[in-house]
Design a protein around this nucleic acid. Structure first.
Lengths: 341, 341
DNA sequence: ATATAAATTTTACGCGCGTAAAATATTTCT
DNA sequence: AGAAATATTTTACGCGCGTAAAATTTATAT
């Protein structure tokens, strides 16, 4: 309950009987003041409902408490989910996260980064667009601001990379598919936006060779981030031309698989490993929607929490000055068996 | 290409041969200075790559150029899509949008609003959680900051409401379903998070009465924002108990419908209006994913662009001081006929 | 209890820009 | 060209807080 109106730190400090620099120090780090002082300040905050002006706070600070979170496409529930998770971790660690999406556009990604600079963030968690990203801008940005790259690694930019072990993803699910039926073909975009796609194709080829099967990659045309539609249209084409050499299709990612499932439905093909099904389809990513496709999609899922935890902690450590050489952390995925394969 | 390093507006003004207050005025509104002056400033910006410190800019400004966009759940592609659209409009209009999600939590919504206050935004585009929202906090916020409510109206808060005409949505699609087969039952959550759900149920009842059919509402249990799962589990229950009195089910929203489709699949029920299908399912919202369900979902879609345009323009007008009495704008939806019904 | 370390207060200055008022220059109009 | 209207420059102050250094108080250790 506020009685008098406190309008700045000066007045707040006076009203709570503490000097302004100490109050300032408290807001910078509550643990940097004596416990008794901290308590007095916190009581006063309750009483006067005071909070410092964030613009004035950040103006002269070399290092703010801001953290930027940048994803290539927020409307993709996969990125939305991981962004949400990162956001929580930032807040819990006392930072102020700001979320940005490049909306699939390289130009916008550059703009976001530029805007982020002016926010003088303590650090940035960045999932780059990938292939389309402006390498030079990215590199410069990473040089200037502590940046952790996640999801898809571009080069050895920033302080570290955290993501999933795409090779393990594909090897693991390829193995599963081989053991439970015909060996899979690999269904992908010809020019994937994301570098992980290349790793997955490569792992598929390697795995198939290792298992003694002939690999077959079906690459479909399509630009941009409308993966479902690319999968659907490409699926129709490949299906009508009989380009799949086996009855099992491993998709490069879940969104492509979702589109392919739609194509299969539209062609009257029953998908699954049950009786009467003519085709098996599997995805990769553990997309939030994969549970609700028809049939529910067999996939290999990112460990969302683990990736987010690892990414956030690495960034926080770097911000706290714990320098360590650039490293790449890739977490294994979890196979999720459902009806589609 | 920057030769010398410009570090503040003072230096920038000196280097470009223009007084600092005029430069300041330019950044506040480029049209407020003479065209020749504007050009000189813009050439200098290019040359020195200068941009003002946003913290210092906003510190003393009574009105910033910030606009807050708040959605209840960013991981819902529907909100992600409309947020993206609003974001673009803000940028085009010269504002700086910041995106926030309440992640389905009322407590977080309050926190977001509180944080937004400290950003001294010129205006806010707010899609409230709905039923769970803290009314008093919302009201206070709307009193203090020009706020346009969109998607779901709580009370007559803020400067205006812009959303879809839920009554028209339901009436229209109910009509379609009645004309093309058995009249629909209505499938919904017992305690919906969103007030639009009540409008839809009511419209269903009214429409059915108008058409001379007996309505039947199936309300399923479930809390929170995991609509697909609620629809799936509730669908299983209702189906096993034979609670649907006709073969046609109109869902309160698309996400519920997606879950219901999964339930139907899991029970071996063929959905659609084609030969051999035992059940028809329709949704409401034009959810980005509805195109890719199996079968593709018949639904009635928000006019995303029109809603976003109307909302943004109303807010911009209010910010520019064009006061007008509170009003509610509700746009009609577009029926999207696909295979599910 | 006394020395030592740590926290706090005082004092003082600066950050980068907003903004108001008055003086001056430029444009526009007749 | 001269007057009126508009734009720009000068001048000057303030915003709310960061931060450094020295002085003082408080806590900790022996």
């Amino acid at each position: 309950m506020a009685q008098p109106k406190i309008k700045n730190m000066e007045e707040f400090a006076a009203a709570s009987g503490i000097s302004r620099p100490t109050v300032s120090k408290y807001f910078h780090d509550p643990d940097s003041v004596r416990p008794s002082t901290r308590q007095r300040i916190e009581i006063a905050i309750e009483k006067y409902d005071y909070r410092p002006n964030i613009f004035a706070m950040n103006q002269n600070r070399k290092l703010t408490k801001n953290i930027g979170i940048v994803v290539p496409l927020i409307s993709d529930p996969y990125f939305a989910e991981i962004a949400r998770s990162l956001e929580s971790r930032c807040i819990d660690a006392g930072y102020r996260p700001s979320l940005f999406s490049a909306h699939g556009s390289a130009a916008l990604e550059v703009e976001v980064l530029e805007h982020l600079r002016s926010l003088k963030p303590a650090g940035v968690l960045l999932a780059p667009l990938g292939r389309a990203s402006d390498r030079k801008v990215l590199e410069k940005f990473c040089d200037d601001i502590p940046t952790l790259i996640f999801d898809s690694n571009v080069e050895e930019f920033g302080i570290a990379f955290v993501g999933s072990d795409n090779a393990q993803f594909t090897t693991h699910i390829t193995d599963y598919l081989c053991r439970t039926g015909e060996p899979p073909c690999f269904f992908e975009m010809k020019t994937p936006a994301n570098p992980n796609a290349h790793r997955r194709r490569q792992s598929y080829l390697t795995a198939m060779e290792g298992f003694g099967h002939a690999p077959q990659v079906i690459s479909v045309a399509g630009e941009g981030w409308g993966f479902e539609e690319i999968g659907r249209v490409g699926g129709h084409e490949a299906l009508s031309e009989g380009r799949f050499s086996t009855n099992t299709i491993l998709c490069s990612n879940d969104r492509l698989a979702i589109g392919l499932l739609t194509a299969c439905y539209e062609r009257g093909l029953r998908v699954g490993h049950a009786e009467g099904c003519s085709i098996r389809v599997a995805g990769q990513d553990g997309h939030p929607h994969s549970r609700y496709t028809c049939p529910p999609l067999t996939t290999i899922s990112h460990k969302y929490d683990a990736v987010s935890k690892s990414a956030a902690e690495a960034l926080f450590a770097a911000i706290d000055g714990h320098v360590s050489p650039w490293k790449s952390t890739r977490l294994e995925g979890t196979l999720i068996l459902r009806d589609s394969a």
